[in-house]
């Protein structure tokens, strides 16, 4: 479970996130929406203890991000948007294994987990090749495997389907559903509205660092009277801009 209580993050004069309060339950998938620079990545980085909130508190499965960083990190698997975060001179297997070892997974269990993930993400053919020569989609799959290697309870995914082809995106969606069924808490940021609709139980929309909507999609549709998700998203932002 993720609990955010009036979380604010300032970088000198810039307020990247302002008084955001939110709860995500176990077994729930929450879609985080917002334009570039809305504060989505900053919010995820605070949940992953990479950034410390200026004000407010974040509690991950009962552990505070301020005071119990190592425990929080054990609960979380985070996939970053932008740069994928893989070592190009290591093989896919070495990359996944390295992070597995950092999480303290025993060698036998780690080997089994790598096989399981590579099968799940269909990457057996290139598991022992160096990542440097991979396509963006192949790298993205390895990065997802890295994030899931320690079987985290909380999964934070920033633009996870960027670079994935149709088949790979479908595999990924199946994986998300599987994790949801296993009771994981999933926070998912995407610009792909169709994907959000297919996977998420609730959505949260951010604008200029503030949370401007949090709830289910049917409720949002009822509030604004639009069925098209892109149109709906723009309406929310327009209304927020008028405030």
């Amino acid at each position: 479970m993720i609990e955010l209580d009036s979380v604010t993050k300032r970088f000198e004069r810039l307020t990247a996130v302002e008084r955001v309060s939110l709860q995500i339950q176990s077994g729930e998938v929450l879609g985080l929406l917002g334009e570039n620079g809305a504060g989505k990545t900053t919010l995820m980085r605070m949940m992953a203890t990479i950034l410390t909130p200026t004000e407010g508190e974040i509690v991950i499965n009962g552990f505070s991000v301020r005071h119990q960083q190592v425990e929080v990190r054990r609960q979380i698997g985070i996939l970053f948007g932008g740069e994928i975060g893989l070592y190009n001179r290591l093989t896919a297997r070495e990359n996944i294994a390295y992070f597995g070892q950092l999480y303290g997974i025993a060698p036998d269990r780690l080997a089994r987990r790598i096989e399981e993930l590579s099968e799940m993400l269909e990457m057996q053919d290139y598991l022992d090749r160096r990542v440097g020569g991979f396509s963006r989609g192949m790298k993205q799959k390895v990065a997802i495997a890295r994030v899931l290697v320690h079987d985290p309870q909380i999964v934070l995914l920033d633009e996870p389907t960027t670079g994935l082809d149709v088949g790979a995106a479908s595999i990924f969606r199946a994986l998300i559903r599987q994790m949801k069924a296993a009771g994981k808490t999933i926070l998912f940021s995407s610009h792909h509205m169709g994907e959000i609709e297919k996977l998420c139980d609730r959505v949260a929309i951010m604008h200029c660092g503030r949370l401007c909507y949090e709830g289910t999609l049917p409720r949002l549709r009822a509030m604004y009277g639009f069925t098209d998700l892109d149109e709906l998203f723009l309406q929310v932002l327009e209304k927020e801009g008028e405030r």
Partner: peptide, 15 residues
């Protein structure tokens, strides 16, 4: 930092 691996590393439970 540039390749994004530092962010992945510091999000792991390593002091």
């Amino acid at each position: 930092k540039e390749r994004g691996t530092m962010e992945a590393l510091i999000s792991a439970p390593v002091p």
